[in-house]
């Protein structure tokens, strides 16, 4: 092994442990997705709610902001003390960090809906739910999507740290690389797919964001 350079080593590593990397990649992505999906399920209704009750918005966004400022390793460890080791702790941590971008963007998206369009909807005799479903959500979908995009990128990073509480994922490969003799190639074998996952998720969701953008004529 010593006579190979780091890229040959990397290639050798993937050739011998490809299945393992793939399974950790899957696991990593699943953990991140679960956290973000839960955050979307909770965060989007909260965002809509505070857009309708603006007095609450300062408070809710303030709290979410504080959560965001807490260093993720500290948050992860504190939640570990409460929930124990393993994957659930990481999903809850991801969930908490994913909340802010989703709530904030849902809120902003809802507020940005043109008042004239809302009046038009009311004029047509739409109920509040109809207005929400047929006007507000479709028009703010692009902004909400941007929030989910931020959340997912954050989530992938936090899941990597989740390996420290035993959740597995690509962080496992990175950590093992840091412990191994000449582990440079192993570190890269974990770090590159993690970086790639983040970059690809970002650009794919960016694509949807543009697609849902009501000002984007090609999607109409």
């Amino acid at each position: 092994m010593q006579n190979m350079n780091i890229f040959q080593q990397l290639f050798y590593y993937f050739a011998h442990n490809g299945m393992y990397v793939l399974s950790q990649f899957d696991r990593h992505f699943l953990i991140s997705i679960y956290g973000v999906v839960f955050a979307a399920i909770v965060g989007i209704p909260i965002g809509i709610f505070i857009a309708k009750h603006r007095k609450l918005s300062g408070w809710v966004i303030g709290i979410a902001n504080v959560i965001q400022t807490v260093p993720s390793l500290a948050m992860l460890s504190l939640i570990m003390l409460a929930l124990g080791l393993g994957v659930n702790t990481v999903i809850v941590t991801v969930f908490l960090y994913a909340l802010l971008p989703i709530i904030k963007n849902t809120y902003t998206g809802m507020l940005n809906v043109n008042a004239d369009v809302l009046d038009a909807g009311k004029g047509m005799g739409m109920t509040r739910v109809q207005i929400l479903r047929l006007i507000e959500i479709p028009l703010s979908l692009s902004v909400i999507m941007a929030g989910i995009r931020n959340a997912l990128v954050l989530a992938i990073g936090i899941t990597a740290i989740g390996s420290f509480v035993g959740a597995g994922g690509l962080g496992d490969i990175i950590i093992r690389g840091t412990n191994a003799t000449n582990g440079g190639a192993i570190i890269l074998a974990g770090a590159l797919p993690t970086a790639l996952m983040a970059i690809i998720s970002d650009s794919v969701l960016g694509f949807f964001e543009r697609k849902f953008d009501p000002t984007n004529k090609t999607s109409q």
């Binding site: 696991r27 699943l30 679960y34 399920i41 209704p45 393993g86 994957v87 999903i91």
Partner: peptide, 23 residues
């Protein structure tokens, strides 16, 4: 509007998350 969301949360937060071999 909210029923599917609630249903989703309940199924997902059940004992084990599919694909992760939870608890």
């Amino acid at each position: 509007l909210f029923l599917p969301l609630v249903a989703l949360v309940v199924t997902l937060s059940g004992c084990s998350l599919p694909g992760l071999g939870g608890t």
